[in-house]
Design a protein around this nucleic acid. Structure first.
Lengths: 153, 153
DNA sequence: GCTGAAATTCTGGAGTG
DNA sequence: CACTCCAGAATTTCAGC
């Protein structure tokens, strides 16, 4: 990676686990002034090293009682699919969306208030991908031990 | 959820997508004073509604070029397994760890510098679970469209 | 990358309904 | 009890070096 030194990496590692740490404290940790840290963080945001910041929320507090994983098998996976995936990624329900190796090449993690919403979401997937969608596997998340580098207790 | 009103939920929804938003701006959005918002956020942290905060980092900038999903099939899944899972969740490599329905009941997402580290991690899993571990399926993440509610561009 | 001053935000206590 | 207001503390920001 160009223009990234060990201190930048240290900043990234810290921010990943403590996203709301203060710039002053961050500076203390990596031995830089608050202003310098700010410059580096802004540089890292510009470069795309930092995509954004998120609070890890227990979905139950938002009445999202159904956490679901969708695994999709597509018969074709081209640029066209990319456009659809990008659109699906934008949906409020969707927490994560990956393309991966293996038979079921798309993995989606999403949150729902109830099972009707799950059905609706599955229907939406079918509509978007059409005949291209060979198989959908749905599993429920029972326990979350860690998420976004933040462990549960 | 007890003692959670619509404004609390709105705060959670905003923090999920903008983890580093200022309390003042957050107050403007939900129409509360900064002090009140702070009280609520602290309450939500105490209650466990907010588990933590995280920056979404492009792993390539940390030389983590190998993103992997492990799906484990365990023959027994009891309290003992919980202890092991909690220990695995603590590992630096591990970004996410879920228990889910279906045959392969454990899903782990982890980051590595190279494939040797993946092999090492797989060996560690075998050692921890022993005969209890019936099957491990490993897939590589090729593309991340969204993560922790933050979409890629 | 540092410094220092100004602007903004955060924090904790007293007061209000 | 949750909210507001307000003053002091801390942080962030922005200039110049």
């Amino acid at each position: 990676m160009p223009g990234i030194d060990e201190k930048d990496k240290e900043i990234l590692r810290i921010l990943r686990k403590e996203g709301r740490i203060t710039l002053t404290e961050l500076g203390r940790r990596v031995k830089l002034s608050p202003a310098s840290v700010k410059n580096r963080v802004e540089k890292l945001e510009k470069l795309g090293a930092i995509k954004g910041y998120s609070a890890i929320i227990d979905p139950a507090f938002l009445d999202e009682f159904v956490q679901v994983l969708f695994e999709l098998k597509l018969s074709i996976d081209d640029k066209n699919v990319d456009v659809i995936l990008r659109r699906i990624a934008k949906l409020e329900n969707v927490q994560a969306l990956y393309r991966r190796s293996g038979e079921k090449q798309i993995l989606i993690r999403a949150s729902f208030h109830n099972t009707d919403e799950v059905k609706e979401f599955a229907g939406m997937l079918k509509k978007h991908f059409g005949k291209n969608l060979e198989r959908v596997e749905v599993t429920l998340i029972i326990d979350t031990f860690k998420e976004c580098w933040v462990a549960n207790e």
